[in-house]
Amino acid sequence: MLERSAARIGEHVATHKLRRIRVELHGGEPLLGGVDAALKQVSCVREAVRAAAGTPCDVRVSVQTNGTLLTEDVVSVLAAADVRVGVSLDGGRADHNKRRVDHAGRPAWEAATRGIARLARHPEIYAGLLCTIDLDMDPVDVYDSLMEFGPQALDFLLPHANWEYPPPGKGPSMAGSAPYGEWLSRIFDRWFDSGRYRTRIRLFAEIIGLLYGFPSRAEAVGLSAVVAVLVETDGSIEQVDSLRTAYAHASSTGMTIFENSFDDVLEHPGVAARQLGVDGLGEDCRRCPVVRVCGGGNYVHRYRKGSGFLNRSIYCSDLELLIRHIAHKMGPVLGSDSLLPD
């Protein structure tokens, strides 16, 4: 299975003469099978790419972990293999992470913090922290506490939700409210007004870039083509697993690494829909003046039974509030009031 996956990646690199690819080890917890197993996957992919590609290709590997298994040895081995490590946390303190427990139900916080401390001693592979938003927590407290871990990058993720399954604090009848936009705006102000650049907050950096006219590189905002597929441990090729929050088997493509190339997957309607830019959006979005920045938001968050993904995001009002807030803060600095149409 592993060799076949690696060979498919090598095949894709060779076919398209790619000079750089990203391989991400994901879970569950990707280090649960041991760091040696993870590194075997990495070396297998690198070897397959080397063997298949006619020109050098930079294989950038990362792992997203809960941090609990980052012992000194594990961090050292990952650093030696040039594998970047991101850690998922719900905030920077124990009480923010009460829902994170180990297999025996014990709090995972102590082990996670020890792991991050070890990781922070290897800044060359410390990729940063991801935090899913919880409206019950104070945003500034969450941000300040996460900054104590010295991340060079941070991101705040909207909880996966859609029009059928709205996020906490925001039912369909509250679609015009923007509690997540307000929550994020408070962190933006803390970060933007701090007077010193200490970390990159991905969502904010992408929005700033889009307001300037740069293309985005994240699926949360912007209109860039999303270029991720997922290989399951049984060899099936899927779209990103976050799609499963829309409905059962939403991420399925019906393809496997045994029978299909990654080029085959590009023909799948669900994958193609995320490559179309503004043409892949619903009518509401295409008419909206904010669309070149929000890009309709994360595809996953647009789902509604009956119309599929051709809808506004359940977070539409939150994204608009945040984007306008950022534009409003940038305007006086840049001497421009035309970053965004009214």
């Binding site: 700033i208 083509a225 991720a228």
Partner: peptide
């Protein structure tokens, strides 16, 4: 960050999976 990223970019802009570093 954005200028460095664009200087290294190859081909058309692409977006990556959100739940990754």
């Amino acid at each position: 960050h954005l200028l460095e990223r664009e200087a290294q970019a190859v081909g058309r802009p692409v977006a990556y999976y959100e739940d990754s570093p």
